[in-house]
Amino acid sequence: MLTILDQVSLQVSHGERIAIIGASGAGKSTLLGLLAGLDLPTSGKVWLAGNELTALDEDGRAALRADEVGFVFQSFHLIPSLTALENVMLPLELANHDQPMEAAKTALGSVGLAERSGHYPRQLSGGEKQRVAIARAYVVQPTVLFADEPTGNLDQQTGETVIEILFRMNREYGTTLVLVSHDLVLAKRCDRIIQMDVGRIRVTPQTDAGADR
């Protein structure tokens, strides 16, 4: 059996911003998946917002995600057959929100895409797609936002715009932010950096978070 993560102990406080960095194959995404309850560890326990994820079944974890978690992916993962607005409406609809369309429109407006709500993902640029993904992540006002290389597919300038939005929304909603990135500059803007190396947490470099706050 292949050990991907080993002896990982990590606590993230409410409202905290942490960055997980490390080389390819270090186990960053695996850790993210475990923290979000997308996968289960073979041993050990994971708590999310006071719930023991490792004690929940698949559907229990899904329900917890619906209530507490938002996601932003490197490849955006928008549903191609749905418009920007419909993609943002999706989590609201799953949570039986009363007015999914109104809330989704507001969220799209807050990432500056009110004008593009009727466009399909293929009609949007990479940065726009990621902004739709951020709107989708924040629209349910999650307790924790997991972002997996959110700027990995974007040019530097677009990446920065996206990061600004991500951090702004973190401030506005007080959301805990768990960020996986290669980008040390981006990581340094977080409160804490977790460096992964071959499945273990190594040193924790200093951040510039004070300045950002």
Binding site: A36, D59, A62, A63, L64, R65, P80, L90, P91, L94
Partner: peptide, 19 residues
């Protein structure tokens, strides 16, 4: 493929398997 992808997104976003 499309359905696998959508199902994954939906479940990541918190939909139960049954739903």
């Amino acid at each position: 493929d499309e359905r696998s992808f959508e199902s994954a997104i939906l479940r990541t976003l918190g939909a139960s398997r049954a739903r």
